[in-house]
Simulated scan of single mutants.
Amino acid sequence: MSEEKMLQGKVVVVTGAGRGIGRGIAIMAAEHGAKVVVNDLGGTEQGDGADQIPAMEVVKTIADAGGEAIANFGNVANADDAGQMIEDARSNFGSIDCIVNNAGILRDVIFHKMSEAEFDAVIAVHLKGSFNVSRAAAPYFREQQSGSFVHMTSTSGLIGNFGQANYAAAKLGIAGLSRSIALDMSRFGVRSNCISPFAWSRLIGTIPQGTDAERERVAKIQQMTPEKIAPLAVYLLANAAADITGQIFVVRNNEICLMSQPRPIRNLQASEGWTPETVASRFGPAVKSSLVPLERSGDVFCWDPV
Rank of each mutant, 00 (worst) to 15 (best):
E31P: 00
S148Q: 09
S91D: 11
L172K: 14
I195K: 13
L177T: 06
F111Y: 13
P197Q: 06
F198S: 13
A50N: 10
A238K: 06
E255I: 05
M6Y: 00
A240Y: 04
N267A: 14
A219Q: 13
G43A: 08
S178Y: 03
A63G: 02
R90V: 13
I265A: 10
G83S: 09
S281R: 13
T155I: 13
V122R: 11
G67M: 08
A103S: 07
I248N: 14
M152S: 07
S156V: 12
G298H: 06
N75T: 11
L203Y: 02
D97S: 11
V287F: 01
F162V: 12
Q222R: 15
G273A: 04
M185F: 15
V109N: 05
A30R: 04
S192V: 02
V36M: 04
S91L: 10
F141K: 02
G18W: 00
I207Q: 10
N101I: 06
G298T: 03
R187E: 15
G33W: 05
A182E: 09
E216Q: 14
M85V: 02
F131R: 07
C98N: 14
S289F: 00
E4N: 11
T153G: 14
K220N: 11
A175E: 11
T245C: 08
V14M: 08
S146K: 15
R202A: 15
I86D: 02
P54Q: 07
T245S: 15
D212T: 10
G176P: 11
L291R: 10
A26F: 03
A117R: 12
S290T: 10
A199V: 02
C194A: 10
G24M: 01
N132K: 12
T245Y: 04
M185D: 09
V38T: 01
V109C: 04
I244Y: 09
I53N: 13
G18K: 00
W303M: 07
N254R: 12
M152A: 06
Y167W: 12
I248R: 05
A124M: 12
A55H: 00
A182N: 09
S180P: 01
I207F: 14
M185I: 00
T275I: 01
D299G: 05
A238N: 12
L106G: 07
V250P: 03
D40Q: 03
A238P: 05
Q222T: 12
A270D: 09
T153L: 03
F73H: 14
I244H: 09
A65L: 11
G284E: 12
I96C: 09
P226N: 05
C257I: 06
D40T: 02
I86T: 02
T278N: 03
F111P: 09
C98R: 14
S91F: 06
I96G: 10
G49W: 01
T155S: 08
N78R: 11
I181V: 14
G273H: 01
V125E: 11
I53A: 14
D88G: 01
I229K: 05
H126R: 08
K128V: 13
N132G: 10
A103C: 08
G20P: 01
V251F: 08
D304T: 15
L7Y: 07
S289N: 13
